[in-house]
Design a protein around this nucleic acid. Structure first.
Length: 203
DNA sequence: TGCGTGAGGCTGGTCAGAGC
DNA sequence: GCTCTGACCAGCCTCACGCA
């Protein structure tokens, strides 16, 4: 259940996005992902992308932001959403990127574009101990405006000889940067051991 | 203990060039 | 012209280690 007391009215939001829209979006994401939670256990790494996608859908529905009109850009590049009615070249202030993450602080991306970012921090409560009928809990929502300078490049050593992931960008000192940006934070969830857990429970 | 950083892992989509 | 293939782009994750 999304509680009004869990919202922080002091957090700056982009014009066209209000706490009411975020509240409805959290509810929408929680409901829609209930049927998809099995996906998390099949392939956890794609589930965060799904959370971000449903965040985009919800904000398209409930806020003054709309999905990017270019399907390929909306699906893969920046931004997911732009302010309704904007045409031509988008300014950073008109861009909103929706991201889902299990991690309490980090934001990772493959680009370093300036704009608004909304991060849906979620946890999986398979036994539904936190909330009956809700295996996916959005426990915090960060809304932050990031500039190019906020990102740092994290290179890749992937190559013919083997190796890992493609290069990424990460937000510098994310915990510091995200201080005061949590427009929604459940009081019954705390971060312990680098993971979100119920106040009176254990993960 | 909390947090930052880096490395290695997964997935799917688009696009351009090569070959038929 | 069509199909196949590889490079590249884009979305994340976990884990280990170091530092405060």
């Amino acid at each position: 259940m999304v509680q009004a007391a869990d919202f922080d009215p002091a957090v700056s939001l982009p014009p066209g996005l209000d706490p009411g829209a975020i509240r409805r979006a959290i509810d929408y994401i929680g409901k829609e992902l209930t049927d998809l939670v099995e996906l998390y256990f099949e392939q956890a790494n794609v589930f965060s992308a799904v959370v971000g996608i449903f965040g985009t859908k919800a904000l398209h529905q409930y806020s003054q932001f709309e999905k990017n009109k270019h399907p390929d850009i909306a699906a893969q590049r920046f931004p997911d959403l732009c302010r309704r009615g904007r045409v031509g070249k988008l300014k950073p202030n008109d861009c909103l990127e929706s991201k889902g993450s299990k991690r309490p602080f980090a934001i990772q991306s493959h680009f370093d574009h300036a704009g608004w970012y909304i991060v849906w921090r979620y946890l999986i409560d398979r036994l539904e101990q936190i909330e009956q009928g809700r295996p996916v809990i959005i426990w915090r929502v960060d809304v932050v405006f990031l500039t190019k300078e906020d990102w740092k490049y994290e290179g890749s050593k992937a190559g013919a000889a083997g190796g890992g992931r493609t290069h990424t960008f990460g937000v510098k000192a994310p915990a510091k940067k995200l201080r005061g940006t949590a427009v929604y934070k459940r009081q019954d969830i705390i971060v312990k051991g680098g993971k979100p857990i119920p106040v009176n429970g254990h993960s």
